[in-house]
């Protein structure tokens, strides 16, 4: 299972005076089991791209091949695409609507026309994958849960479809620090257990740096760069020209390097930074400042 996006172009309101090019010449590949982080500021085309990946939008040019199937080809079954590619929108808890958690999570699988026993099994599996206890949660109203729990229930609703690709659009936006950490951990767990391709869009550079195998940077509807977190976050000037920052810890270690610290370039975690700084200082290293 892999994804190949080739030369994607999308124009909004084509032929109208307000016509605007949202994506142009977008090409990239995601390999089996990878976690792809996507960054870009608001209006860069990230959301338009996500909506192409699950067939909500059709490109004006280019192709998207997922697991050998070109989902942009005419006549391709949308139901089939949606079954294989699960998209979790921003603030997905706004879409909770059922009386109980179990019914809400079951909504998607039920629409697939599965047998009751199969539906129950999937609901149980999905709730447990997102870190919620099935017995404890199933009969509760989704509306009496905390913000972080609601979001997990909403994500479970997508996971219960057993998608081969899971796409999450800013899954931690608006959560408090604890819920933020819990949801990130959940994404790692789900990715680890299913081994599926996961696509994560976030404004939080530290999260992107820590979770992603590869990072895709988008600006004005085009791919700016793509690579491992180390590769991408070593391009500070390029990122800054498209309005993106380095992760906070990387900002700090780069500032130290500018002041003469001989430490590794593009450090992405606090623990690595502490190792490098401590080693440098203990070896008698002094800044020339």
């Amino acid at each position: 299972m892999s994804i190949q996006v080739k030369n994607l172009k999308h124009i909004y309101e084509k032929g109208m005076p307000t016509e605007s090019v949202a994506l142009e010449g977008v090409s990239f590949e995601v390999e089996d089991g990878e976690l792809l982080g996507i960054i870009g500021h608001t209006g860069s085309g990230k959301s338009t791209l996500l909506q192409h990946l699950n067939g909500l939008l059709k490109p004006d040019e280019g192709t998207i091949v997922i697991g050998g199937v070109d989902i942009t080809a005419p006549g391709v079954s949308m139901v089939e695409i949606r079954k294989r590619i699960g998209l979790v929108f921003q603030y997905p808890e706004y879409q909770l609507f059922e009386e109980t958690v179990a019914k809400d999570v079951a909504f998607g699988p039920r629409n697939l026309g599965l047998a009751d026993s199969e539906i129950e099994e999937r609901v149980r599996e999905a709730l447990e994958l997102v870190g919620l206890d099935y017995e404890d949660m199933k009969d509760r109203s989704p509306f009496e849960l905390s913000g972080g729990q609601k979001r997990r229930v909403a994500i479970a609703g997508v996971i219960a479809m057993r998608p081969e690709v899971l796409i999450l659009d800013e899954p931690t936006a608006g959560l408090d620090p604890k819920a933020h950490k819990d949801v990130l951990k959940m994404i790692e767990d789900v990715h680890g257990k299913t081994g599926n391709i996961t696509v994560l869009v976030s404004h939080n550079m530290a999260d992107i740096a820590n979770l992603s195998d590869k990072v895709l940077v988008i600006d004005s509807g085009r791919v700016v760069t793509m690579g491992t977190p180390e590769e991408v976050f070593s391009k500070r000037d390029e990122l800054s020209s498209v309005g993106l920052d380095l992760p906070p810890i990387t900002c700090l270690t780069e500032a130290l390097r500018e002041r003469g610290f001989k430490i590794r370039e593009t450090i992405l975690s606090v623990e690595d930074a502490a190792d490098e700084i401590a080693e440098y200082l203990k070896a008698g290293g002094k800044a020339e400042c």
């Binding site: 604890k178 810890i249 700090l252 606090v270 930074a273 502490a274 700084i277 401590a278 203990k282």
Partner: peptide
């Protein structure tokens, strides 16, 4: 109480653990 600390505070903790 389940809150974060600023990144520099986190780094300070990690550095103290390493004897800095």
């Amino acid at each position: 109480v389940n809150l974060d600390v600023p990144m520099a505070v986190e780094l300070a903790r990690a550095l103290r653990q390493r004897g800095i």
